[in-house]
Design a protein around this nucleic acid. Sequence first.
DNA 1: TTGATTCCGGCAAACGATTGCAGTATGCGG
DNA 2: CCGCATACTGCAATCGTTTGCCGGAATCAA
Lengths: 344, 344
Amino acid sequence: MRYIVRTTIKDIAKALDVNIGTVSRALNDKPGVSAELRKKIMRKATELSYRPNGHARGLVTQRTESIGLLSGAETSTFLSNPFYAGIFAGIEAETREHNYALMFASATTESSIFDGRLPKFIVEHRVDGLLIVGAVDEAIIRLLNESHRAFVLVDYHLPGEDLETVVTNNLRGGRSATEHLLSLGHRHIAFVGGTPLDRGNFHERLQGYRDALESAGIAYREELVRGGQIVGGHDAALDLLDAHPEITGIVACNDANALAAIGALRTRSLKVPEDVSVIGFDDIPAAQESWPSLSTMRVDKIAMGRKAAQRLLQKLEEGEASAPHQIVFPAELIVRSSTGAPRK
Amino acid sequence: MRYIVRTTIKDIAKALDVNIGTVSRALNDKPGVSAELRKKIMRKATELSYRPNGHARGLVTQRTESIGLLSGAETSTFLSNPFYAGIFAGIEAETREHNYALMFASATTESSIFDGRLPKFIVEHRVDGLLIVGAVDEAIIRLLNESHRAFVLVDYHLPGEDLETVVTNNLRGGRSATEHLLSLGHRHIAFVGGTPLDRGNFHERLQGYRDALESAGIAYREELVRGGQIVGGHDAALDLLDAHPEITGIVACNDANALAAIGALRTRSLKVPEDVSVIGFDDIPAAQESWPSLSTMRVDKIAMGRKAAQRLLQKLEEGEASAPHQIVFPAELIVRSSTGAPRK
DNA sequence: TTGATTCCGGCAAACGATTGCAGTATGCGG
DNA sequence: CCGCATACTGCAATCGTTTGCCGGAATCAA
């Protein structure tokens, strides 16, 4: 085993011939220590490069000053999603600034609850609170709720429950995206979706699309909507275009799907935006770098992550006091070069 | 403050009227407890849904069963780099399977060492070991070395030192990429790089490019090499093409730069690969999805992450015993549609 | 000088586990 | 029926902090 010398509070006490309690009080800015002695203790502490032992402290204070980031998806899926990566970055920044440590884990299948494979930090209570990013099994949320753990849901919410959440205004965003195409003169607008499409974020965006059409007096046609994975964004677009050549505009449930759709259009030698306009959602970095650059609904991912972390930390300070907030971030229309007036 | 009921080892002991020591031994599969009693204790433990308290345990065992992932770059930079995201995923998988928790932090500037803003988990010794991904300040490495902390460097190494590392064979990879273009018949091959180009991974890849050229009897021409950021991959390519229209092939230091270069070529109405062939490095997901799909040198990021985690965990088990390994992963040529024979 | 009041600092009990050591059954042979 | 070895199990110290409580010194007013 490794042998590491670590100076403890005792060493300081011994060196200065005072009691450990006094040292503790001095180090933690607690009253009951004269300014002079406090200074002496501080000096000695840095001299011996003293670092508090998190375990010992955590044992008595029952706090770890660290929070957990829990993803409902596989880690590689989670991280390769630029949207979540942005949220992660926001969370990390906020927690770091508040001197909290950040633990990461994913909790995917429901089974993990029962076979005890839930992330250790949940089960052994080694984090003060949890940030749950994306859809996660309801059973986990119920579990956390019952055990009175502090947590905040990011980019996900359970319809019925009154939970602390930070989400995007998907409904309005979907609506705005569609309205953008409508205002350019498009009338035959398709929606290429992700999974699931019958609930969650993508469903809300679809609903916004639907609302916009209906407000514009255009009938919603189910055959112009296709779900599927990202790769499916490609196939879905082909399907749609072949079956409905009148389509001049596509609203995608997110940027990845939009990019895939553009790729599909290219294989049919259709030009974007001359032949078909495409608008995405999220504004991931690739949206800007792609060609043509992608019009999209921007969501401030960093800000969402930061806000969620703020809420959690605040909850931890205040205890149960405050009622759950539901914070909704707007999505902002960013017009780039993948959308334009329809062909005549 | 929140009030959470947690069952402790004491509760079990009381319920069964045995000593806490016995309970501890039973729960940890230590000898000295009859099979019968052990079973009874186990049952009671699950009945009361007992979870060991990490702090208490850590205090006596001096281990946390958790490791830290330290990034040298800003978190958002780190996460939006698909290469690192892959490594992260590999690390997460491996640590999860071994029941270790994973903490994340970034340590960017050197200043952070002195103003005490180094990640808490390093300083308060709350992780057993560290995985350092990407270039990080040497001072930090020195610090860790001196304090005898177990750590493994991933995708980074310090020339002189004999440290535990997991890296890519950049030299050979750069060479293979270049040889691929040479074998297709290209003779005027440029290199578009990242920063820094005078040391580190990109330098090694450049060196491989140079070796390949020289082995093929083609003089290395400094004016065909351009450094710069990713966005610079775009500008660098334009620069090069305008100054040296004879160029028919481009080796990029990584996929992001390759993609940027392709974008640049498009603005000059140059076709890939008909007019210019482009090859990248890393094989990030976008390489496959882009159009044209990108030929590249694949690096198995997940495997690298896993391997690094394995090494660290092994080190932790064995103590200082083993001498540092330097594990080198090969890069594999993946031919897609961005490379072809040069125009005549 | 005395009594009240304040302020400091020491003492020791937690927190929840692990673990060496000592003690007590139990079984077995004599 | 006794002694001895061999399991088991209990006791208590320990890890490094925090924190309530208490005693003593110092200050001040009367």
